[in-house]
Write a protein that binds this DNA or RNA. Structure first.
Lengths: 191, 191
DNA sequence: TTGCTCCTCACGTCACGTGAGGTGGC
DNA sequence: TTGCTCCTCACGTCACGTGAGGTGGC
């Protein structure tokens, strides 16, 4: 609009907003944020309108939207924002549940490792044992999900099965009952 | 070991364990899980030992480890598992906090959208407003993090600044005080 | 002989990171 | 003239997904 309007170079804009220069190049490449003009030498010149658009992009990114979704919202007026948010929320809550379980599992493993520093083999057996425990403690999930594990177990020879059980027992024997209880609580509690 | 030992083809193993055939191909490519033998025609033949290794891989993946880390744990005996778990836990707790905030934000946006179905422009302004609110409600973070936003605001002309404030005001005017309060609680509550 | 499974390339995904090699403005 | 910033390729990331085109065993 105004010839005297303040302009930004990529570097200036990057520094001012905290994104990288490469990110601005990328947004230009995919036509999400194209600078209003270029200098004679081909350098990008961002105007105030571009800066505002970048702010919007950053805000929407903070809400977990993909760049394609953001482009849709910013450029086409026909986006069903309600469906978009609902879908995004469902995804986020799904991830939340997963990350919670992961944290609980890792915390209980860390707890076990705080008292012993096992060899990698023992560590792997601890993880396997916990994975088995997890399955044992959510029956419905186990039923519903698959019979994979059981089928796999059936396919093992009795000798293999016994060896597996023995390794697992040996692992848990190293822990005190209190530790095992703590692990269980960590797993089932505020997941 | 035993010539009569049960063997699996890729398809059988995939079906039995719930991973895809492509995943098994991938694990073979990166030498994470190489079938014990191949048939005359070059078909992969997995033995019981391979199946056990796949189980271990799956268990470790469930704990969020990368394939490279898993290879390290399974193949080299020198891995510092304690450091590995601590690092993984720190990462997971970080993600947990982020996903929690994201969920809270999305829930409050969904709440606002439950009463009105705004145009994409209004929606973007709502998001921007919430981002601003978020910053307003965690002073220390704002101080600590950067002055980016403030610098950006300073770079706007007074007219632009006023227009921004006006748009934001118009957006919030559409909401009842109760809705705004609920949004605040959603943001600050069980984050 | 017909299916179904198996094989090996090889490009695509998502949002950039990271050089490589060269040019322009103060 | 020296730096610093800018430019455009173009490959790499991570864990596979998805065809493409062809072969092998029941």
């Amino acid at each position: 609009m105004d010839e005297n309007e303040r302009q930004w170079t990529v570097g200036e804009l990057a520094e001012a907003t905290g994104v990288t220069v490469r990110t601005l190049h990328h947004y230009d490449e995919i036509a999400l944020l194209t600078p209003t003009s270029r200098s004679a030498a081909g350098h990008r010149r961002y105007a105030a309108a571009d800066v505002r658009r970048l702010h919007r992009i950053a805000a929407l990114r903070g809400f977990g939207f993909t760049l394609a979704q953001i482009a849709g919202v910013l450029d086409s007026g026909e986006t069903d924002v309600r469906a978009l948010v609902d879908q995004q929320l469902a995804q986020a809550e799904d991830r939340l549940a997963k990350v919670r379980r992961l944290c609980a599992s890792l915390r209980s493993v860390a707890l076990a490792l705080a008292v012993t520093n096992p060899s990698p083999e023992m560590f792997v057996q601890l993880i396997e044992g916990m994975t088995a425990m997890e399955n044992a403690y959510s029956r419905e999930e186990l039923e519903a999900m698959t019979e994979h594990r059981r089928r796999m177990t059936e396919q093992l020879t009795p000798e293999e099965f016994a060896a597996m059980a023995e390794r697992r027992r040996a692992m848990f024997e190293q822990l005190t009952p209190e530790q095992i209880e703590a692990m269980r609580r960590a797993r089932n509690g505020a997941g």
